[in-house]
Design a protein around this nucleic acid. Sequence first.
DNA 1: CGAGTTTGACCCGCGC
DNA 2: GCGCGGGTCAAACTCG
Length: 310
Amino acid sequence: MMMEKREENREVTAVAGVSPFVADQIEGIFDIAFDSGGDKSSQGFLELLGLQDLPGFFDLPAPTAPVEATPSEPPPDSSAVLNFPATPNSSSISSSSTEAATDTDPAKTQPQEDEQDKTQKIDSKGGKNKRQKRQSEPRFAFMTKSEVDHLEDGYRWRKYGQKAVKNSPFPRSYYRCTSAMCGVKKRVERSSVDPAVVITTYEGQHTHPSTVLPRGVHPALPPPLAAEMAPPPPGGLGCVLPSLQPKELHFPYFTSYLPTPPMDFRHVSAGIITALSGDLRECKPTADILNRDHGLLQDVIRSDIRNKKE
DNA sequence: CGAGTTTGACCCGCGC
DNA sequence: GCGCGGGTCAAACTCG
């Protein structure tokens, strides 16, 4: 219910899946970011993610336990998992999805057809059988450390189910975008490894603008360009680099090309974005964007901290 | 009263 | 074929 929307004291903690050492650093940074006065609520999550673009961020010590160990997640599939080496240098920003392996699946590149297929199945079976397990729509998951399960992301969601997750004390909740004709879904669950970590998986693409227009969205970006830069991301999240190495994760790009707003990450400290879909195009940042992002960085991080990082 | 949540039942895919 | 687990439906319920 809306009970999840209460204004709790959101703890500013660590990036999910990052070692305590890193977490401590991040925490410090975010404390600054949030305590610097002004409208905290306007701090978009993806802007915060921009912090991860800090040089050497991903060179920091390894996480103790990969977040991907989430029981609900299937074992990494080489074709489905982002190219995050399972080395100590990786931030365990990895995930997988069974359908992501079907890169060549036509349905994947043509969600419309998939929808049609769904409908056909409904018609053919009639009655209650509207289920369609096949998840060929692009999926997009990320992990956040948050006290609240259901994070604000600018869209309205309706919960349509909840299931207990095997090997996890925490249930998984299923949400659907309340907007008509928008079939975007999202799953929210807590990691059994780290209960503080919320794993949110978006599926599908919003066919409508969000109800909120937070910072980080650049309306000036012409739609065609935006489309070229990044496919309309599920859940309003941005493009994903197809063959990611930790150091190549330039999260500000997400921010820059977001056609839909990022979440209200007052609730979270930071997140890890993980692509679950193979239907992704490479982001092509421009100098302008880089400059802009740097500006954002300046907004968020004290200069002396930045210098230290650099 | 409408919108959203809860929850048990149902269906499907997959592994054995 | 069977059982398990994930995903979805839909009636009942809650809340504003």
